[in-house]
Design a binder for these strands. Structure first.
Ligand code: MN
Ligand code: MN
Ligand code: ZN
Ligand code: ZN
Lengths: 136, 136
DNA sequence: CTTTTAGTGCAACTCGATTGCAAAGATTAT
DNA sequence: ATAATCTTTGCAATCGAGTTGCACTAAAAG
């Protein structure tokens, strides 16, 4: 497990107070976090600063975003070595009951044979249903 | 190819002027359409009426929605026999250049082996890249 | 025909996302 | 060390897709 400083160094993103605390928040949560989630947790950091931090992180592949259909984009830290290329693709699970989303790193994504002349760049794969905690 | 009237009859949705024209619009476009797309095309129909029509259609499985990350939910008519169950799952392709989205009915979706005790209900699978038209 | 239920149009509103701008902080040049 | 320059941050305002209340109209039921 890498520290915030290590990750930012590897991804060549300058370390600042806001970036450290935002990345720390993401690292310490198993579930993907929305801007609102982070804003609520970091009472003294401005929303727009968090927003711009997330943009910077995403541009530099520190994190990736997930559109889970909940209305709020969620963010998760990229796995070590992730470059946000098609090879790094993975499913996400969204629980329709508890509204939480997380990466399914362990389930393989098959090769997707696109029609002729199409070029795969990325994907947003969200599987929805009940998580183990809500499925009782 | 079924007519608007046939589809609505099968799905037990009452036929109205707005519903007919919205469904016709969707049927006549290969690409998934946003509320804005439909609003622009149907100059004399109110946005909220289109909006409620889309909700009704989705509830009754006349159409399904796609979150392609463009910021606008898009809608496509369900295939004949579709019940919006996991069995009806399919990928969608979003072109990052022309901002168009459509169903990839011909590409099989593999069985997704979720972790123990998880229950699959639905999915939003969006593959992104360049369409054949934009990939030159 | 009268009553009831469903659909539509308009305007207002919600809320997540985004931006302009000035102050604060960090970096580079003199 | 100081000044000039660039970057980050906070605040307030704005945007825009989505959603809702309400009155009016149309359709269905009695
Ligand atoms: Mn992920
Ligand atoms: Mn589809
Ligand atoms: Zn859950
Ligand atoms: Zn295209």
């Amino acid at each position: 497990m890498q520290t915030e400083e290590e990750i930012l160094k590897i991804k060549k993103v300058k370390n600042t107070a806001v970036r450290t605390v935002v990345l720390r928040h993401l690292l310490s949560h198993e579930k993907a976090q929305s801007l609102k989630d982070i804003e609520n947790a970091l009472a003294y950091t401005d929303r727009s600063s968090i927003f711009r931090t997330l943009k910077t992180f995403e541009e530099n592949k520190v994190i990736h975003s997930i559109e889970d259909g909940s209305g709020m984009t969620k963010y998760a830290v990229c796995a070590e070595g992730c470059n946000c290329d098609p090879i790094d693709l993975h499913y996400h699970f969204y629980c329709t009951n508890c509204d939480k989303t997380f990466c399914l790193f362990d389930i393989p994504i098959p090769n997707i044979q696109l029609p002729k002349n199409f070029k795969l760049q990325q994907a947003n794969m969200v599987v929805k249903g009940l998580c183990d905690n809500c499925n009782r």
